[in-house]
Amino acid sequence: MRGQANLPALAVALLVLTTTAGLGVAVADGAFASADRDAIDRAGAAALADRLVAADSPVTERRNVLNASRLEADEADETQAGLESLVPEGAAVRVAVDGEVVYERGDPTGSPTVRRLVLLAEAQAVTIEPPLAFGETTLPRRSAAATITVAEDADVETVRANDRVILHDPDGLSGAHDVALSRYETTTLRFDGDPQEGDVTVTYYPERTRKAHLEVTVDAGP
């Protein structure tokens, strides 16, 4: 008799227990679904951003310094091809600089965006005809390179940059020469020989930089 009286109680107990268990599993499932952290998308975006600001990326001049002219329309094809080689296959990717999209494949809207601080560098050519009264001239601004053009019959044997010999020809220099300078120090060019005013022109490439944001969004797919 005792066992039979307990039977309905057991049934009710089991019912309550299974209902609660089902509810618990549902809540847990919801918690896991909402805890989707886009880890793969975020890792992809961070890695792609790292590669884009690296010194050997197709858009940088040196680490964290983007070359502004390579982002402009006339060189877009080359840049697009360079970027294409960096982005992972099958992923939707958007790369923007200061809000302007420079590369887009698919639509990654909604995925996490990784932002990096970069500089946009623009180099313009400035040509000067240095006064050669003392055989030397100091470039007004720092530049990583310069083109020195010496007239045909000018009497210049050696050109030094901060006492380092950069051009030398015992028979006399002539023509245009590209030379590498240091962008970390002001350069003084010294012309050994007896050049006349107007025999030498120097083109240097001072760089203007401004800050910008690089924004990378990646959707690695389902």
Binding site: G24, F32, R37, A39, L117
Partner: peptide
């Protein structure tokens, strides 16, 4: 069972992506 469920209902903490982004800014 309700005790276990409560753990999930309180939620999982938000991902710590903020400091990763800040580290990237500092490095830049």
């Amino acid at each position: 069972i309700l005790a276990v469920t409560l753990g999930f209902a309180l939620g999982v903490s938000a991902p710590a992506t903020e400091s990763a982004q800040l580290d990237a800014y500092a490095e830049d």
